[in-house]
Design a protein around this nucleic acid. Structure first.
Lengths: 417, 417
DNA sequence: TGCACTTTGGCAACAGCGTTGCGAAAGTGG
DNA sequence: CCACTTTCGCAACGCTGTTGCCAAAGTGCA
């Protein structure tokens, strides 16, 4: 039902990566071709992809942009729905344009009526809502010791889930087999239980570093054997649907951005390591090399204790050392100083905390970080007050859900950054 | 000749701030009304302006977007010009669409023929170029001890300039009078020497903090009497043209972004203080409160020496202390550590150095910062190598030129961030 | 109960965008 | 001089959002 939004440049777009021949349901098919580690897309200079994209806007691009925007407004409104006039006001379009767009969305099965509003003296407004079942995506969280697969609908609701223990160091074949198996299971469960259209694709989130634009892993921390592995293309070839790969922190941040966190914010995740997902102006910021978010190896103590990365005085080293001593307050303070540096540099609207270590003792961390940010704001005389600190919502499934949003986001017009 | 790009929402847009009745050339007119500190625009909640702007795209918006894009490509091509087919390829539009757009630009006096290319076996391509004289903007750099005003054409070339000593602490009236005087002088010089269309407006860059969206100053460092002064609206009322206000570091960064520096980069300015201008994806990042770029008060030495801001161990304090001891190498090293934190956090493409202190001894700073970034990159095993460090080009006029780009940028489709 | 009024939202005509088909213009090369 | 290539404008077209208009569906007062 849902097609990926057409950007109007379908004339010379490279073919969908590994989409291969659509032999019925391609799920669970044996690999019809095994791309070697070097068989990726045509090598494109990353600089080109960033510095000057063809920014000319087509009528087709305009159409899909506005349709995606209206769809996003419908999604944001939730099950209560929105009226056409409200959509028009929020989108900055005329009511008649919205009428045409919503008529198309209804024809495509993406939207439907949802009752009417109370009259204000005239004809009551007809309320529209998204049909969440019109599209699905798979989100995979490939963690160091666990694999989690979720199936979510257009609304972002989880409609299927599986977990399995897994070691990232068990070798590519073992990990891929486990991943493909769990994904297939989740999908066949959903297919058995009800009507399910073909999924839009699979998003995979895992610890970095990696190249998001090409979907190639670099040396995953602690598992150098993955270096250079073209995960996206291998998975796309085996699954027969589009695959997107991203860092776990970015996926989590994307999930929050889609889930209602507006503006610019940073999610700090403290677990085996310390990383950050950055959202700037509602867009996940990855950087040209998918290297953004290196929060943990920010130096906040010149010539401080040696960190595993080779530098001295990194936030991560100080924070984990404090945790090793059982000094949560100091760990939170150190984290707060790093967060204050980040907040000052980017003028973000919120700091969100997550990760296993923080979830084990949320309150002292949130308070400790807030205290540092408050102190900085007061000393610098900020008129807006300190950046608010909150716990990142979503729990243990957040990364997998965010991974699914790597596919759902474009449907609602979200750009990558 | 040049009208500001129409975004298609001119139905309910607030009137151009202080544009007033156009009584001939409004320059140098006595103030016909003096807006008090509270007579600004209708107060708009900053959250709204950031979190959800009406993103629906109009046919009018599409038209002006594509026209601005083509104009930008013409500007980038320089005096040699570009052919229609090249424009079409770069813009992602069909040649025929480009023909129509360039025909309009030629009618409006913004573009013209510039010879032809050598034939490749058929009709030779006609080359088009921008007409730089079709539009101008004024850039003002309001520094602590000096005032600099430049007049630039569409190409960004400086066609008029004036300097005057000035103390920001001399009081609002004195500073405003000096500013208005110099601006009027620059314009009348240009009017006398040749044909000059009415300028697009005036961009003013000064040390922060301030509110870029409203054009209101906060407590300019060291000059608390400016707190809350609505500089944009006051100047707009007196000059009768649009005015945009921004931090000096942001203006400088914008100037570099327009001047050819692509992608994402940071400009670090070391003078009486230490600040940064951030460009992320070709867009200046200011943050919702125009607070981004607080590079100098990044803490890199927990419990270090006290800084003027009240915190301890700020880069600025350490850097300036080292300079006070004459230890340029240590200052560069400290600066480099801060730059490494920034580069890791944002995955930027380049670090540019500027400011009076650095220009006094450029080579040791560039080398010292590069050494630190190299060391970090090597230790972390970056496959792309270290972030390149360069001197920010442009010299002493860079900030004023960038201020003028605050007005020119929108003509070429540059969004604010 | 009936009528005036308000508000919503679809139908139809329209202006204007980029696209396509086609041909004139302006070169090269034999 | 002619065949060929390439550029680029004119004209028709499809599709976008916009405007004008009117039916539909309520409220509220007589």
């Amino acid at each position: 039902m849902v097609k990926r939004t057409n950007d109007g440049d379908d004339t010379d777009r490279p073919p969908e990566s590994g989409a291969g021949p659509a032999t019925g349901s391609a799920w669970g098919l044996p690999p019809d071709r095994e791309p070697g580690p070097e068989t990726g897309r045509a090598p494109e200079r990353p600089a080109d992809a960033v510095t000057r994209r063809a920014a000319g806007v087509n009528l087709l691009a305009l159409r899909s942009h506005n349709a995606a925007l209206v769809l996003d407004l419908l999604r944001t409104a939730g099950p209560e729905g929105v009226s056409r006039l409200e959509l028009a006001e929020r989108a900055g379009l005329t009511p008649q344009a919205v009428s045409k767009i919503t008529a198309r969305l209804r024809e495509e099965g993406l939207a439907t009526d949802a009752g009417r509003r109370a009259s204000t003296g005239g004809k009551p407004r007809t309320v529209l809502r998204l049909i969440p079942e019109a599209g699905h995506a798979v989100g995979v969280h490939l963690d160091r010791d666990e694999l989690r697969v979720v199936l979510v609908d257009l609304d972002g609701r989880v409609v299927g889930e599986r977990r399995a223990p897994l070691s990232l160091g068990a070798g590519a074949e073992a990990v891929l087999d486990a991943l493909l198996g769990e994904v297939t299971e989740v999908l066949s469960d959903a297919l058995g239980s009800g009507a399910l259209s073909a999924p839009l694709g699979v998003g995979v989130a895992l610890p970095g570093p990696l190249d998001h634009t090409r979907g190639v892993l670099h040396r995953v921390t602690g598992f150098p054997e993955w270096d250079g592995f073209p995960l996206r293309d291998v998975l796309a070839a085996r699954l027969g649907v589009p695959v997107v790969v991203d860092k776990d922190t970015n996926a989590a941040a994307l999930g929050l951005a889609v889930g209602g966190e507006r503006g610019s914010f940073a999610c700090l995740y403290l677990g085996t390591g310390l990383g950050a997902g950055l959202v700037i102006g509602d867009v996940v910021h990855r950087g040209a090399r998918t290297g953004a978010g290196e929060f943990g190896h920010q130096v906040i103590q010149l010539d401080g204790p040696l960190c595993s990365c080779g530098n001295r005085g990194c936030v991560e080293a100080l924070c984990l050392a404090a945790m090793g001593r059982g000094d949560v307050a100091e760990a939170a303070r150190v984290l707060g100083e790093g967060a204050a540096n980040l907040a000052g540099l980017l003028d973000i609207d919120a700091v969100l905390l997550g990760g296993r270590t923080i979830m084990a003792a949320p309150e002292p961390f949130v308070r400790g970080v807030a205290v540092v940010l408050d102190a900085h704001a007061r000393r610098e005389g900020s008129r807006e007050g300190a950046v608010p600190v909150r716990l990142a919502p979503g729990g243990a499934r957040a990364v997998a859900e965010g991974a699914a949003q790597l596919l759902l986001g474009p449907v609602f017009g979200r750009r990558d950054g």
